[in-house]
Nucleic acid binder design. Structure first.
Lengths: 152, 152
DNA sequence: ACCGGTATGTCAAACTCCTGACATGCACGA
DNA sequence: TCGTGCATGTCAGGAGTTTGACATACCGGT
């Protein structure tokens, strides 16, 4: 094919030059940093994400939390059990309408989240400051466009 | 604190507005798309990544492949066993120098990779075309800066 | 009233991946 | 020569996640 548009036809042959590879590398580094930081607070990354979501949206159900953290309902179910056993959240055993069981942070859960949040903030700042401020919004928007393109 | 610099001091309170959240979401979407596409070729994502690396750098060892795909040596070891059992790669049982066992693609492995690559290319293109061409290089560079900031 | 579609919570089994550990092999300096 | 350090390959165990399946509960149209 002797095309006229030179670029954006096929990905680079070198895997390490491809967008997906770079994305995976950054995500892997982020996951590693968060794992390490949260371990000192006795939390895993999914557990932290769950607490953070519940703090902003109290009463979310298991399925809603699963969608919000990009895991399956089953995985989130075990996460919730762990958090419940640790006394960080509460969930009613039954409900009068539907099947969804709304989860809420306990006082202890809120304290634990606040402590862990400072560690995560430090990581988020290191990462955010690596990209110039004026480009951050555009960067986030591009990420969203990519996500949308992948899900269509 | 009545600071003068309004932004870039603390991450947004809304988790879904944070850089880490967006990054995880995009990475999750990419992983899902690749999982689905590669399943039709009988490969997992780590298996594909391994084949791709071996195609460009024949003779890589288990540990080198592990570093290149962001997993542990142990995980890569099981991946290599699977690829070996499937007849897609070969690895000598012994070596005359050191312990590293250089892996190589078989003819069948090369064919399988070529077939799977087309599916992955389609995904990479959909993702790449979501960001304007003139911004792609900058996007990749920012990803690298973030990775470096997280690993320091 | 019924029934199909959708959404939820949960169980079981399988798989993947990681942590911890150990043995082997090479390189370097004492 | 010996010993320390470092990198590699591998085994065992466990933690986390997914796929598949099933029962329950609401909502819609017929």
């Amino acid at each position: 094919m002797h095309d006229g548009t030179p670029s954006s036809h096929t990905p680079p042959a070198d895997v390490t030059q491809r967008l997906g590879y770079r994305l995976k590398r950054t995500a892997s580094a982020l996951r590693g940093a968060m794992d390490k930081a949260l371990r000192e607070h006795g939390l895993t990354v999914p557990q932290y994400a769950c607490l953070e979501l519940l703090d902003q949206h109290p009463g979310l159900s298991n399925a809603e939390l699963a969608r919000g953290t990009f895991v399956t309902r089953q995985s989130m179910n075990t996460v919730l059990r762990g958090l419940q056993d640790a006394g960080l959240i509460t969930r009613p055993a039954t409900t009068d309408h539907g099947r969804a069981l709304p989860a809420h942070l306990t006082e202890q859960g809120h304290h634990r989240l606040t402590a862990a949040r400072s560690a995560v903030y430090a990581i988020d700042q290191r990462m955010t400051q690596a990209v110039p401020t004026q480009r951050l919004a555009q960067f986030l928007a591009d990420l969203d466009h990519m996500t949308a393109a992948l899900e269509e």
